[in-house]
Amino acid sequence: MNRRLKMLLIMTLFACISGGVLSLVYLISAPLIEANMLEEERRSILNVVPGIDSYEERIEGEMKYFECKDASGFVVGYALPAKGNGYQGVIKLMVGLTPDLSEITGISILEQVETPGLGGRISEQVFQDQFQGIKTEPAVGYVKNQAPDKDTDIQAVTGATISSRSVVTIINRNIVKFREIL
């Protein structure tokens, strides 16, 4: 009995020390982690909606979006955080839209775990820049291995059609949802 009690005590002791130490480390690092996230959010919003002065977070039902204003307080666009399934895992991105949602002002891929060298190239600036000025009506599309000739299309990354299509699908799905609430 005594030995069991000792075992139990030792394990509890170590668990408590571990919990205590970790809470302490977490308390120190949590503000930094939080600041990191906010900074990343800020950078991606400024990146996708050019020429803005301030933005405000809005939550409508399940949707979160950012209303972006210029220096004189006019709404010049929206930034929409979106996520969905890619080829290997979840892709998170930020889409910038004009106030009437008819045109994309830019996108920024925040997180993806696609195949490095293939699908992972959706993170490259060249791919993301294609979305600037793309029309959202009737829907964003993509073409393979050639320059797109419609103003709604982008060119898929060579050898990574599924990842490229995922990005397009995520964007379309969220714009449709966003239109409903706006």
């Binding site: 668990a15 919990g19 970790l22």
Partner: peptide
């Protein structure tokens, strides 16, 4: 709201 205990509790 104790996400930082995730690894420790999972492995135990």
């Amino acid at each position: 709201n104790v996400p930082f205990l995730q690894y420790v509790s999972f492995i135990i």
